[in-house]
């Protein structure tokens, strides 16, 4: 370094390349980091602009939440009863959780606590791969394979129903729940396990008495994120549920989901029409519910981190 450059680098009032590079990077990462706020705000504003117009004019809360008559295309008497759609989504998601919660928690416990070495690494990769399978592929499996399986096994006329969509959605949500639940188990210090083992606890006792209580928040968050995922999923429920407006009496009834309704109908509506705006109202509902679920999961996860940092409950 020549003496001149050295003197400049030590000059209090001279801003060199490094100073500007630092400033540029700061701005860049700030934009990247805060863009999430922009997007979430933007999306909500967009949905709200279209949907709220409907909410304040045609919208009838009694009809929307109380009627199953979703007849947006009726020329004489269009009605927008979303009850069947809400029940459809809820029943599919509910069944999916019944399938995926025990499945994925068991998988997480096996991968995190029992499997060792190569088995464990292989399983982790496979589960992550499973999580990456496009939902249309799952939908296809529901549509072609599960459909005929259900017809054969249960001797019912149609296999595209709550059972089909629930199982497929459950299998689809399981890998993500497994991954998050396994992370939660991994966050439990090994010292806890060793201490409990040294007391003479069996492996299952260690897991039940020490590891699961310690990982409880993370496990709940995993389940909630799985619920959120199931709730917002579209393609599987469109392809496997039968897509017919119906209050189901049993898991063998076809139903229609909120998401699938939007996906199937939006392309055929006139922009700005009541129907178009009613679909956006469904969007608001979906947005609010998934937002609430994810927020709850996030708050619970933060709870864990804080506990980890301060050693407090």
């Amino acid at each position: 370094m020549n003496p001149q450059a050295l003197a400049r680098s030590r000059d209090f009032d001279h801003r060199g390349r490094a100073w500007y590079a630092d400033r540029a990077v700061t701005v860049f990462v700030f934009i990247g980091g805060t863009s999430a706020i922009l997007f979430i705000g933007g999306i909500f504003a967009f949905i709200a602009r279209e949907g709220l117009g409907f909410v304040f004019t045609e919208f009838d809360a009694g009809e929307f939440f109380g009627s199953i008559a979703w007849r947006p295309t009726s020329a004489l008497d269009a009605t927008y009863g979303a009850l069947a759609l809400i029940v459809g989504t809820a029943s599919i998601t509910g069944l999916a959780m019944v399938v995926s919660i025990p499945f994925s928690l068991a998988a997480a416990v096996f991968i995190g606590e029992f499997a060792r070495g190569r088995v464990r690494e292989t399983l982790k990769v496979l589960v992550e791969l499973l999580a990456a399978i496009p939902s249309v592929v799952w939908g296809f499996i529901g549509f072609s394979i599960m459909n005929s399986l259900i017809i054969d096994i249960f001797d019912v006329p149609i296999g595209l129903n709550v059972l089909n969509a629930g199982i497929i959605l459950g299998l689809m949500a399981a890998p993500i729940m497994t991954t998050i639940a396994e992370d939660a188990l991994k966050a439990v210090p090994d010292g806890y396990r060793e201490a409990a083992e040294a007391l003479g606890a069996t492996r299952w006792q260690v897991i039940r008495k020490v590891v699961i209580p310690a990982a409880k928040n993370g496990l709940v968050a995993a389940v909630l994120l799985g619920v959120g995922r199931g709730f917002g999923e579209t393609m599987v429920v469109l392809m496997a549920s039968g897509h017919s407006i119906n209050l189901p009496d049993s898991v063998f009834d076809s139903v229609r989901a909120l998401t699938a309704t939007i996906a199937a109908e939006l392309g055929e509506t006139a922009v700005g029409s009541d129907h178009f705006r009613a679909l956006f109202t469904l969007g608001i509902l979906l947005f609010l519910v998934t937002f609430a679920i994810n927020l709850a999961a996030d708050i619970i996860m933060r709870g864990i981190r804080r506990k980890g940092e301060r050693g407090r409950p």
Partner: peptide, 19 residues
């Protein structure tokens, strides 16, 4: 497990189980 239950262990750093 029966063997371990007859052997008490105290580790270098106290491991207070989350209980």
């Amino acid at each position: 497990y029966a063997l371990r239950s007859r052997i008490g262990v105290v580790f270098p750093l106290p491991v207070g189980l989350p209980l």
